[in-house]
């Protein structure tokens, strides 16, 4: 069984600061997983390690059995929190560019998601508001039919209407028969009905990884309540 993202005893240090400590877990295909925890708990770093954009100080990260590095981008569709775009492009040009670079980028799907997100294809990215940039990020990330979709805080800082259309977009365009969606969130309530399982971090350590239903059965708690109990 090699179709997994697997972390084995992963530690990540920046200069003198330890951001993640001895993390081990695996995520298979067919799941929606939330990485949860407070500010500075290491959520974003964990996601970047899975994408191969960051490299572990010790331990190993493998994606489908291969050590993660930047070339992992072939099978991982990653979106950063602030969004990464070439400001020189319009919305349409950005979509075309992604399509030219990634064999798994489905332009027809991108068009559909763009309409759902109510984006104007001729808008210059430079001129997009924060909310619109968030939507564009969704379009560019979900239009790839990559096995792993990793999104850093896809819902944060957006108004409820946009959040709802993004959630609907995720459900509509992520095919759980062949894909896995992993996202970070500091608002657990926001993603509770969306996720199968979660990875809870605290101060760079893995607190727990479990299925949401499993948590219900073992502790009779919703994940939000469990987090309140555990983090205070």
């Amino acid at each position: 069984m090699s179709d997994v993202i697997r972390m084995t005893n992963v530690t990540k240090k920046y200069i003198n600061q330890t951001v993640l400590k001895d993390i081990s877990f695996a995520v298979p295909i067919g799941k929606i997983v939330g990485i949860v925890g407070g500010n500075g708990s290491g959520k974003s770093t964990l996601l970047r390690l899975m994408s191969g954009l960051s490299l572990p100080t010790s331990g190993s990260v493998t994606v489908n059995g291969e050590t993660a590095n930047r070339r992992t981008g072939k099978v991982v569709s990653y979106s950063s929190e602030l969004g990464s775009f070439y400001p020189i492009f319009t919305v349409k040009e950005a979509m075309r560019f992604q399509a030219s670079q990634f064999a798994d980028f489905n332009l027809a799907k991108a068009d559909e998601i763009m309409k759902l997100m109510q984006l104007d294809p001729h808008m210059k990215i430079k001129a997009l508001s924060k909310g619109h940039r968030g939507r564009l990020q969704i379009v560019l990330t979900l239009a790839r039919e990559a096995p792993y979709i990793l999104m850093d805080e896809p819902l944060s800082g957006l108004d409820p209407m946009v959040r709802e259309s993004i959630v609907k977009g995720m459900i509509s365009y992520v095919d759980l028969n062949s894909q896995t969606l992993i996202m970070t969130s500091h608002e657990v309530a926001e993603i509770e009905t969306l996720i199968d399982g979660f990875v809870a971090l605290k101060g760079g350590s893995l607190l727990r990884m479990a299925d949401v239903d499993e948590l219900h059965e073992s502790e009779g708690l919703r994940i939000t309540d469990w987090m309140k109990k555990t983090y205070i």
Partner: peptide, 16 residues
């Protein structure tokens, strides 16, 4: 999938 979209719910949960 449609049920999932209607309730903003994970399709795996709907399946269950």
């Amino acid at each position: 999938r449609d049920m999932g979209i209607k309730y903003s719910m994970n399709p795996n949960t709907v399946q269950r």
